[in-house]
Structure formats: C-alpha cells, structure tokens
C-alpha cells in the first residue's frame, strides 16, 4: 500500500565504500565535539531532533557522545516530516514515523536537526515547517553525516560529517547498525550503465 521506504539495492550497481564502520564512529565523535564547542554555555538547552528514518538513531548517538565527552545529558527527539513533504505526489504515500519531543518542549531552545544525507534540502525544509508547528526554538541548526551537494533550496548544514562531491546519477546510502545491521556509507553508480 505504501511506497517502500528505500528501494533495495537490487539493480545493477557498483558500490564504493565511503566510510567504513570505524570511520562512522570517528565522524560521529568529531561532530559531537563540534556541537559541544559551538553550543558553549547553551549546551543544557541543546535538543537533537532526528529526521526519520536514519536521522533518529544518529541523533541518539550524537547525544550519547556529547554526554560522554561533556558530562552533560542532552535531550533528543524525532520529527516525522512525511505530512510536510511537497513531493508526495511523486514519491507516493509512505507510512508515518514517530514524532517525539522532549517533555520540556523546544520553545526557546537550541534545536539541531539531524539527518543522514543532505541532498536537495527538501527534507530539511519539511522539517523546518514541522518544527514551526511544534514550537518556537531560539535557534535551529542542522547536522548531517554526509553532504553530497546538489542543493535545490538555500539551505546549508552547520555540522557536516563528510563532504562528498557526487554526480546526480550517483546514490549515497547510509547504513546504521540500528536500522541496517551495520555502520557504513556507500556510493553507488546507478543508471550510468544504461
């Protein structure tokens, strides 16, 4: 009934490993340090809000590393953006994901949206619209594991795990242990053989 979440890598494709499991852990650690540094005294106000599917576990990991490095526990949440997308007609109906915010809400706080890949920027735009309906944060920032370019909107990330220049024909796939059984980032060439 719903569109499948992501087409499985069943088509002929060549995959290159961009980040191996150890690389993913290292990148997350570095992002956590950057978050602590940039938040400064506002660290207790920080809320990491993941965009499902993979932004949600990523936000939890970042929060755990921030807590480990700084000794400060930070709030996490998720915001489902499906009902805010402007491309439903193209992508088809999909099952909704959880929207969970910390008990204190997000009003007046430093919200960092967390996603796996930054591409066109449309998911982030939808997340910003959703946040606007959920409260009024003081600041909203963006953290992504991979920025692959090709923006279609004036959006940029505040924290980037890895910049990966790609062609439009390429696909970037992020796998996380929580959702996919392993940590890795792959670049696949699809359609280029056609």
């Amino acid at each position: 009934m719903a569109g499948s979440p992501e087409p499985a890598a069943s088509r002929t494709s060549t995959a290159g490993v961009l980040l191996a499991p150890a690389d993913v852990a290292r990148v997350v650690d570095r992002m956590a340090h950057q978050l602590i540094e940039k938040a400064g005294e506002q660290l207790p106000d920080l809320v990491l809000v993941g965009i499902p599917t993979r932004g949600a576990p990523l936000a939890r990991r970042l929060a755990a590393r921030v807590a480990a490095f700084s000794g400060t526990a930070v709030d996490v949440g998720t915001v489902d953006i499906t009902l805010y997308r402007d491309d439903l007609r193209m992508r088809g109906v999909r099952a909704l994901e959880d929207t969970v915010l910390p008990a204190q809400g997000i009003d007046g706080r430093l919200v960092v949206l967390v996603d796996d890949v930054l591409f066109s920027g449309r998911s982030v735009r939808a997340a910003l619209d959703a946040l606007r309906d959920l409260g009024r944060p003081r600041t909203v920032q963006l953290a992504v594991l991979v920025d692959r370019g090709h923006r279609e909107l004036p959006i940029r990330a505040d924290y980037v795990g890895k910049n990966v220049p790609t062609s439009r024909a390429q696909q970037v796939r992020v796998h996380l242990a929580e959702t996919d059984g392993t940590d890795e980032v792959l670049v696949t060439e699809e359609g280029s053989r056609a």
Partner: peptide, 24 residues
C-alpha cells in the same frame, strides 16, 4: 492496520499542539 497506525501517528503528531493543521 496501516490506516489505524497512520491515525495513531497523526494523533501523536498533533497531540498538545496549538496549530492543529498539516500542509499535507
């Protein structure tokens, strides 16, 4: 089940909000 699950997610997404409207 998908209809019921979706309704539950919508309930959750709208719970406690002032703006009860979605742009979908």
């Amino acid at each position: 089940t998908l209809v019921l699950d979706t309704a539950a997610q919508i309930d959750q997404a709208l719970a406690g909000r002032e703006v009860k409207k979605l742009p979908t």
